[in-house]
Simulated assay, not measured.
Amino acid sequence: MRLTASKLNKFLLFKLPAAFICGVRVKEIDENKCVVSVKHRWINQNPFNSMYFAVQAMAAELSTGALVMFQIQKSGRKISMLVANNKGNFTKKATGRITFTCNDGHLIEEAIRNTIATSEGQTFWMRSIGIDEKGIQVSEMDFEWSVRVK
């Protein structure tokens, strides 16, 4: 079974309902890139009339984590994944539709290969960039993922 945007969105509904209710949706995924979108609405706003930072973090994390899930599935092995660390930078108010893109899928394959070969945990950083409808960057988030063979 191949991981697709619609399967990931169904996963959100049942396993991450807060993200689903806030409008976080996977738009596109392949082995190197994942695109996640969320629209500023009443349910996900902050008191300053823009998107709450945690909603942006959910969408950004999903754009990186979905790629990790994709590569784990591709490996055919039972491998655990966990966010070990994260950092974010917010450069503009997030209003309208924000699209988070991660292009770091290539980083995961080597970490999975190493954890399978050594049975030791591996960590790697992935970046997701949030862009508004005008093409202006509103946030940039980095997530340190840890993977290890179960």
Rank of each mutant, 00 (worst) to 15 (best):
M1E: 04
R2M: 08
R2A: 13
L3S: 02
T4R: 05
K7R: 14
K7L: 08
L8T: 12
F11L: 12
L12V: 09
L13E: 11
L13N: 03
K15H: 13
L16Q: 07
P17R: 07
A18F: 10
A18W: 08
A19N: 08
A19D: 10
I21W: 12
C22K: 09
G23V: 11
V24C: 11
V24N: 05
V24G: 01
V26D: 05
K27A: 09
E28G: 02
D30A: 07
E31Y: 06
N32K: 15
N32E: 14
C34N: 01
S37K: 15
S37Y: 03
V38L: 12
K39C: 10
H40T: 04
H40Y: 15
W42M: 01
N44A: 08
Q45D: 05
Q45N: 10
N49C: 13
N49S: 13
M51C: 05
Y52W: 14
F53C: 07
A54L: 06
M58H: 04
M58C: 09
M58I: 04
M58N: 10
A59W: 12
A59T: 09
A59K: 06
A60P: 07
E61G: 11
E61Y: 10
L62Q: 12
L62H: 14
L62N: 12
S63T: 13
T64F: 07
T64Q: 06
A66G: 12
L67R: 07
L67A: 04
V68Q: 02
F70S: 01
F70E: 12
Q73Y: 12
S75C: 14
G76E: 06
R77T: 01
I79R: 00
I79N: 00
I79W: 01
I79L: 01
M81T: 03
M81V: 03
L82S: 04
V83L: 08
V83M: 09
A84S: 15
K87M: 06
G88R: 02
N89Q: 15
F90A: 00
K92E: 05
A94Q: 14
G96M: 14
R97P: 00
F100Y: 10
T101N: 08
T101I: 13
C102Q: 03
N103S: 09
G105D: 02
G105N: 06
G105K: 04
G105P: 03
L107I: 10
L107R: 15
I108D: 05
E109M: 12
E110H: 14
A111T: 04
I112V: 15
I112E: 08
R113F: 13
R113C: 04
N114P: 03
N114A: 15
T115M: 11
A117P: 05
T118C: 11
T118A: 10
S119L: 15
S119V: 06
E120F: 05
E120N: 14
Q122A: 09
Q122L: 06
Q122R: 15
T123P: 06
T123A: 02
F124K: 01
F124P: 05
M126P: 07
M126C: 05
R127A: 02
S128M: 00
S128R: 00
I129S: 11
I129F: 00
I129K: 09
I131W: 00
E133M: 03
I136Y: 14
D142S: 11
F143D: 13
E144C: 15
E144A: 07
W145V: 06
W145T: 04
W145K: 01
V149E: 15
V149N: 06
V149A: 13
K150Y: 09
K150F: 06
